[in-house]
Design a protein around this nucleic acid. Structure first.
Length: 274
DNA sequence: AAATGATCCTGAGAGC
DNA sequence: TGCTCTCAGGATCATT
């Protein structure tokens, strides 16, 4: 479920209730995630003031004075706000308890992660998982020339270069497909072969698609953090190619094609994208 | 060094 | 109804 817009929507949903509040208790019900959740983690943060909720790529960063909790939602994770008395459901693995609110990390596939970065190890940006990430797609550092530099000389297909996260973060499978459609670029194009003009188009498309999704995230996933979350709404309204194999392109009626790149599905219009 | 493939795990949906 | 098969929004790690 979570690509960058969903993670950012989640961040906006939880920040008002978490920032500046004492985390009374962190309870781990299932520690077998992408990596095992450290047994001493609850002791480190329970009773401490949670200062800020940030995001870097698809990582949520919950800051404390003495360190930072990194939360990744993986493929199937969500973080929802529930009442103090609401019972846990299946796959609710971690619980954040504040005086007036409560949050549950739900993740059936358990590809998500919960890690502690101690302040003594330096700023959280130096954490191995964050240190080599590309720039934020909606930040000032993401420019057409940054994208151009990132893909220079690369033989790799542009779709995979976008997905890699070393140039720009947060462009997941759906939005990579949608951005390439919007830019009229074939997903198999060797990244380094794109003309400056087409790189500029792609850059603009990525920003537009993500901003668009974020706006919709605000509406279609508004209850993402306090309800069950209803995926699919974005697709109905916005997806031009994703999961539309065989259906007519909205622009030219040509059937949308599905191919596989690095074991991930890619959808594109063979006529609009060259 | 860059690119590729296997891998972690559960659930939903299709087809029979 | 129930079985088997395929696929899924991520991304790390080991291998070529």
């Amino acid at each position: 479920m979570p690509e960058l817009p969903e993670v950012e929507t989640t961040r906006r949903g939880i920040a008002p209730f978490m920032s500046g509040h004492v985390l009374r208790q962190l309870i781990v019900h299932e520690s077998r995630m992408r990596w095992p959740i450290a047994a001493d983690l609850p002791g480190r943060v329970s009773g401490q003031v949670l200062r800020r909720c940030d995001r870097r790529g698809k990582y949520l960063l919950l800051h404390f004075d003495h360190g930072c909790l990194l939360v990744h939602l993986g493929m199937s994770g969500s973080l929802r706000r529930v009442s103090l008395s609401e019972p846990r459901r299946k796959h609710d693995h971690v619980e954040w308890c504040f005086d007036e609110s409560r949050f549950l990390l739900h993740d059936p596939r358990r590809f998500g992660a919960l890690l502690w970065h101690d302040a003594q190890q330096g700023p959280v940006e130096t954490h191995p998982l964050l240190a080599h990430l590309g720039v934020e797609p909606l930040g000032e550092a993401f420019t057409a020339s940054h994208l151009q530099r990132g893909i220079r000389g690369k033989q790799q297909a542009i779709k995979l270069a976008l997905l890699g996260g070393q140039i720009v973060v947060g462009v997941g499978n759906i939005y990579a497909c949608e951005s390439l459609f919007r830019a009229g670029i074939h997903p198999l194009t060797p990244a380094g072969r794109l003309s400056t003009r087409r790189v500029e188009r792609l850059h603009a498309a990525i920003q537009a698609v993500l901003e668009n999704a974020l706006d919709s995230g605000g509406s279609t996933l508004r209850d993402y953090v306090n309800a069950s979350g209803q995926p699919g709404a974005y697709f109905d309204a916005h997806a031009k190619v994703y999961d539309r194999a065989g259906q007519p392109c909205h622009t030219c009626q040509t059937p949308i094609r599905r191919i596989v790149q690095a074991q991930r599905a890619t959808y594109y219009c063979p006529k609009c994208q060259r």
